[in-house]
Design a protein around this nucleic acid. Structure first.
Length: 498
DNA sequence: CTAGGGTTAG
């Protein structure tokens, strides 16, 4: 077998056996050392995730080119082995070479992976200095870095500096970035902007989950329906799994459980995320029995629940008062699946016991735990249950722990006050209020607002300062006595440009 | 050899 033939065989190899047979041939025929062949082997092993094999080869190479360094750095980053990737990159720098367009994107992944933004900022500097800003893949990786750091202002600045050289990945990063940052209306505005820029060209279906999630979290059912209609009209393959999952989730968030179920039923292929989403939708709508039924069905079908699934089913049991089922599921996850419950799961269990009034049982659960592993969210769940059931004794215990753990969290003081107030204990009430004053804590009042004709109108609790408040209250009173279907909500077209 | 989508929680 010639060098050329082995090379092309390796470049298309997808199995361990082909790769190692080629490797054996290179040795048998004394074709090594040879940079091209060794680099081909490197890539073949990396693609199979066999980083140990790749590394052994790489260390023995007497000569390396940019390609070989890039493969090592990118593959380590791809397999979340960030420190190994960094070590290789440092070795690369010691050779006096400069990164190229293939080296740079994985470096941003490394920076996020090791939680070290300085490294990413430095790499952004390199991108500019070495003149790679015009390469859209490189600039997109910079954009993604800022999105993952949660600094949308920086992402926006990168975005606007490269006016014109965007592609659909750029838009998707911006839309999903705004969504992840909770800036849903910005995400929707960005989507509209995108439609303007690329009218006529086909819409990339990868952005649909991002835009659906922005519409759903904004609670805008009409826009969710609009995007759904658009999907049905334009994508003949029907829904792929992530799009189906996003539809289920966002119909659920907008209060249309029936539509979630319909999407779920028509999906030809589902995964763990689909099932978890559907379980949590049932839970959100107080359908605990349906959640448990689906959970048991998925286990029967051989799905292995993950930490998110467990949180969803426990929360669902809790909201529907299914204490025994919740307890059973929690215990079986530990014994049957060797599941290591996280702090969130314990918080769910406390909520499960607490919500139904089993406050003593909830407290015992926390007392049995090592005190250093009891988190604020667990005591917080207990305190919330004590407010619900007006329990002073356990409420004080939970509040005491919370005051230690999060001394500046105003809502804990307010919750304890609420318990005293509901039991008519004026002394306790004023003591906590005084403590809050001493600590300089101010309760931020609940507030809601509405945008009409480009103006925002704010309303605080019990606030009648708005000039039209008389009329507003009268209309609100009428509305609250009228049955309204979600179809009657106002019209706000999203896709009218299409 | 480089970039993008979906799930929990109060």
């Amino acid at each position: 077998m010639s060098r050329k033939f082995l090379s092309s065989l390796l470049r298309t190899s997808t199995t361990h056996s082909t790769t190692s047979q080629c490797h054996a041939q290179t040795i048998l025929q004394s074709l090594l050392p040879n940079v091209i062949l060794e680099t081909d082997l490197l890539l073949a092993y990396s693609k199979l995730g066999l980083m140990g094999h790749a590394r052994k080869l790489f260390d023995k190479m007497s000569q390396r080119n940019m390609h070989s360094w890039n493969i090592m750095i990118a593959s380590y980053a791809h397999n979340s082995m960030f420190f190994d990737a960094l070590t290789v990159f440092q070795g690369f720098k010691r050779c006096g070479s400069l990164p190229d367009r293939y080296t740079l994107p994985p470096l941003f992944k490394i920076s996020v992976g090791i939680g070290e933004p300085y490294f990413g900022w430095m790499c952004h500097g390199l991108v500019i200095k070495l003149g790679y800003v015009e390469i859209v893949v490189v600039t997109n990786s910079v954009l993604e870095f800022y999105v993952k750091c949660g600094t949308m202002s920086q992402a926006l600045s990168v975005f606007s500096h490269h006016n014109g050289s965007w592609d659909s990945v750029t838009w998707n990063l911006m839309i999903s970035g705004f969504g992840k940052a909770g800036l849903y209306s910005d995400a929707i505005r960005c989507f509209r902007e995108m439609l303007k820029h690329q009218s006529g060209t086909e819409l990339d279906y990868m952005i649909l989950p991002s835009i659906l999630s922005a519409c759903g979290k904004e609670g805008d059912l009409l826009k969710v329906k609009e995007v759904h209609g658009f999907i049905v009209r334009n994508f003949s393959f029907g829904v792929d799994v992530p799009i189906g999952n996003a539809l289920i989730d966002n119909y659920g968030k907008c209060g249309c459980l029936k539509d979630s179920e319909n999407v779920f039923k028509t999906m030809s292929c589902v995964n763990l995320v689909t099932l978890t989403t559907m379980i949590s939708c049932f839970g959100m709508h107080g359908k605990g029995e349906e959640s448990v039924f689906l959970f048991e069905k998925m286990i029967h079908e051989g799905f292995k629940p993950n930490a998110v699934t467990l949180t969803a089913i426990l929360a669902s049991c809790s909201h529907s008062g299914l204490v025994d089922q919740g307890k059973k599921i929690f215990n079986s996850m530990i014994s049957d699946y060797g599941f290591e419950p996280t702090a969130e799961h314990y918080a769910c269990m406390v909520d499960l016991f607490g919500r139904c009034g089993c406050l003593e049982e909830a407290l015992q659960l926390l007392k049995r735990m090592k005190s250093s592993s009891v988190t604020g969210s667990m005591w917080g769940a207990l305190l919330a249950s004590c407010v619900m059931h007006k329990n002073v004794e356990i409420g004080e215990v939970a509040a005491y722990h919370l005051f230690q753990l999060e001394p500046n969290n105003t809502s804990n003081y307010v919750a304890l006050c609420g318990i005293y107030q509901s039991r008519g204990m004026a002394h306790g009430f004023s003591t906590v209020r005084a403590k809050m004053r001493d600590l300089g804590l101010i309760k931020t009042p609940g507030c809601s607002w509405i945008n009409t004709a480009g103006r925002a109108h704010k309303f605080y609790q019990g606030d009648l300062s708005h000039p039209l408040s008389d009329m507003i209250c009268k209309i609100l009173y009428e509305i609250s006595n009228t049955q309204i279907s979600t179809d009657d909500l106002g019209v706000g077209y999203l896709l009218h440009d299409l």
